[in-house]
Design a protein around this nucleic acid. Structure first.
Lengths: 334, 334
DNA sequence: CTGTTAGCGCATTCAC
DNA sequence: GTGAATGCGCTAACAG
C-alpha cells in the first residue's frame, strides 16, 4: 500500500523523528519560528541540517497553494533582446525566493498557451514577454494567475512597454539635421506590437519634420532579410534607412557593402534595440532599448501583483538614440 | 478545517462529479486509458475539456515522484554562448513533456548549489552548463537526481564536452601556413575548464609546428579586457593572436584599430566560440563551438539518465575553424 | 508552546 | 471495468 518514491531526500518526518518532536513542530520551526521556543527551533534545525533536509516546495504548495515559482515565456531565447531581460527577471525572482520556469514559444501563439497551461498549476504568476497570443487568451490566463506583459499594451494588465517614440524621434531629427530628406523604414513582422509602435513613432516624427518615410517590408527580422531588401531600399531613392532591429540593419549594412555603397558617406543606417553594440562595421547607430530594465521592472510588478497589489500599472520605458558611426551627412546625387 | 486554495482551477474531483464517475476513473482516463472502457474515457475527457481541466503536475508528483520538470543552471544567461544551448535544451525537454527551470548562478559556485538545492525536489534531473562548483558537490547532487554536465570533465557523470582541439589545431595550422611563427594566446579565467582545454590544445598544436605560443592573461572574458591587453600583445612581438573567446577578440580588434594597426594586413586575430558571427569588422575568424548541439545532446543524455540508462557517457563535440577576414599573411617587420 | 488530525490533488493498491 | 480507501510531504486548524 505504501507508495514509495524513495528519492533519498529526507522528509519532515525524518527530522521530526530525530528531533523527537511532532511533524507540525518541524514545519513551524521553518515557516513560523516565532511560534515555538527558541530551544526547540534550534534542536529542530540542528536535526534538519544533520539530515540535509530541505523543505519540499511542491508538497508545501499542495496545502498552501504557494509554489514559490514563477514562469517567463519568450518568443525566442536566442534573440539577443531577451537574455538580458530573462537574466534580470531571474535575479529579481531569486532574491525574493522564487524559482523561475522558462518557456520558449518559438514565436508561436499556440505553443505559448500550451506552455502557460503546463506551468499554470506550479507557478504563482507569469511574465509574458512580447506575447504572440490573442489578447483574450492572455486575459483568461490572468484570471487564474497574475500576469505581467512586456511589450504588449493590454489594458487592465500590469505591463511594461518599451516605447520607441523618443529614440525614433531623435533618430529622425538626427538624420534630418544631417540633411536627409528621404528615408525608409525597413519593417519587421506586421503582427508585432513593437513593429506597430515603431511605425507609429516614425509617422509622428516624419510629420513633425514635414517629410515622408516609406516602409519597405523585410519578411523576417533577420540578417538575411536585411540583405535581401537592399535593392528595394536603393530603388526608393532614400539616403537613409531606419530598420526594425539591429539584425536587419546589419544585413542591410552588408548588402550596401556588396553594392559598394560606403556607409555613412553615401548612405546612413539606424538600427533598433541596440543588441549588436559596437560590433558591426561601421559601428551601428541604434535606438537603445534597455531590455534588462524591462525585466527588472516586470518582476517587481509581478511580485506586487502576486501580493494582491493593484493591477493596472503601465510602465513605459523611454528609449534614446545611441549615435555611432553609421550615420552621416546626406549624400546628394547629381 | 477545509484548506482552501481556490485558485479556480478545476480538480480531478470536479471532473469526476461532472462525468459521474469516481476520481480514480478520471485519473485512469488520463494516465492509463487502456484500462477502462472507451466510452468512459470519452465521457471523462469531454467533461474534462468542458471544465478546462488540466492535470496538476505538482500534485501528481507527490504520489509518483515524477514532476515532469528538469532544471538547467548556467553561469550567465546573458553570455551569448548559452542562449542557443538553453534554447536547445528547452526544445528537447518540451518535446518529451518536461518543463524547464532556469537558474543563473552569476558565475558563483555557492549560488549554483543553492539553486540546485532549491530545484532538487521539483525536478527529475539537472543540466549543469559550465558549472563552477566543486566536483564533489556535483557528484553529491547526482546521487539525488541525475545530472548531466556540459563543458566539465567529471568521470562517472554523463557529460558533453566541446573540445577545442580540432579547431585550435586548424587555427594554428592556418596561421602557420600564412607565415606566422610568433603568436600569443590571450587567455580567459584560469579556473575555467574551457580555458584549460584551450591552453592544452594550443600547446599541442604549437609543439607539432615547432613553435611557441605565449600566454597573455585577460582578466575577464570581455570586450574591455581585450582592449586593455593590446599593448602587451604588441610588445610580445607576435604577428597573430588567438583569444579565449570572441569578446576578447573583438576588444583586441578595436584596440588594434586605435593603434592604427590594420587587420589582417599587419596583425591576425582568431576568436573562439563564434558567437559574434560575421558582425565584427573585419569579420572575425573564429573557432566554432556549436553550443546549440551541446544543449541538444545534453537533454538527450539527461532523458536517458532519468530513464535509468547507463551514466558514464561522454560525448565530445568537435570544433572547426570558421575562416573569415581577420587572418592574413604574416607581416614582416623590418 | 506543542501534539493531533485532516486534507491539498492525485495515483495507486485492493475489492467488487 | 470501476469504485473505495490510503498515502505522497506538508501546513492549517484545533486541542491541550
Amino acid at each position: 500500500m505504501t507508495i514509495r518514491k524513495d528519492d533519498g531526500l529526507p522528509t519532515i518526518s525524518d527530522v521530526a523523528l530525530r528531533a523527537r518532536v511532532a511533524r507540525s513542530t518541524v514545519s513551524r520551526a521553518f515557516s513560523r519560528p516565532e511560534m515555538i521556543s527558541a530551544s526547540t527551533v534550534e534542536r529542530v534545525k540542528k536535526a534538519a541540517t544533520a539530515l540535509g533536509y530541505v523543505p519540499n516546495y511542491a508538497a508545501r504548495a499542495l496545502s498552501t497553494g504557494l509554489h514559490g515559482n514563477i514562469a517567463i515565456i519568450v518568443p525566442d531565447i536566442a534573440n539577443p533582446f531577451f537574455p538580458p531581460l530573462i537574466r534580470a527577471v531571474q535575479a529579481g525572482a531569486d532574491s525574493e525566493g522564487y524559482s523561475v520556469f522558462l518557456g520558449d514559444s518559438d514565436e508561436d501563439a499556440g505553443r505559448e498557451l500550451k506552455l502557460a497551461d503546463r506551468f499554470a498549476n506550479q507557478v504563482e504568476g507569469f511574465i509574458l514577454a512580447s506575447p504572440r497570443s490573442a489578447q483574450q487568451n492572455i486575459m483568461d490566463l490572468n484570471k487564474r494567475r497574475p500576469v505581467v506583459v512586456i511589450n504588449r499594451d493590454i489594458a487592465d494588465l500590469p505591463r511594461v512597454l518599451i516605447d520607441p517614440a523618443l529614440g525614433v524621434k531623435d533618430a529622425v531629427a538626427h538624420l534630418v539635421e544631417l540633411g536627409h530628406r528621404k528615408m525608409v523604414y525597413v519593417s519587421g513582422p506586421a503582427v508585432s506590437w513593437s513593429d506597430q509602435q515603431r511605425r507609429l513613432a516614425l509617422r509622428h516624427a516624419a510629420a513633425s519634420h514635414d517629410i515622408r518615410i516609406d516602409t519597405i517590408s523585410a519578411e523576417r527580422p533577420t540578417f538575411n532579410a536585411g540583405l535581401k531588401v537592399v535593392s528595394a531600399v536603393l530603388r526608393s531613392g532614400a539616403t537613409a534607412a531606419i530598420t526594425f532591429d539591429d539584425f536587419v540593419a546589419h544585413g542591410l549594412l552588408s548588402g550596401l557593402a556588396e553594392h559598394h555603397i560606403p556607409v555613412p558617406k553615401k548612405f546612413s543606417v539606424i538600427g533598433m534595440d541596440d543588441v549588436l553594440g559596437a560590433s558591426t562595421f561601421p559601428a551601428l547607430t541604434s535606438v537603445s532599448g534597455r531590455c534588462d530594465e524591462a525585466g527588472r521592472i516586470a518582476i517587481q510588478l509581478l511580485i506586487g501583483a502576486m501580493q494582491g497589489k493593484s493591477s493596472d500599472i503601465c510602465t513605459v520605458l523611454r528609449t534614446h538614440l545611441a549615435i555611432r558611426a553609421t550615420t552621416g551627412q546626406a549624400f546628394r546625387r547629381q
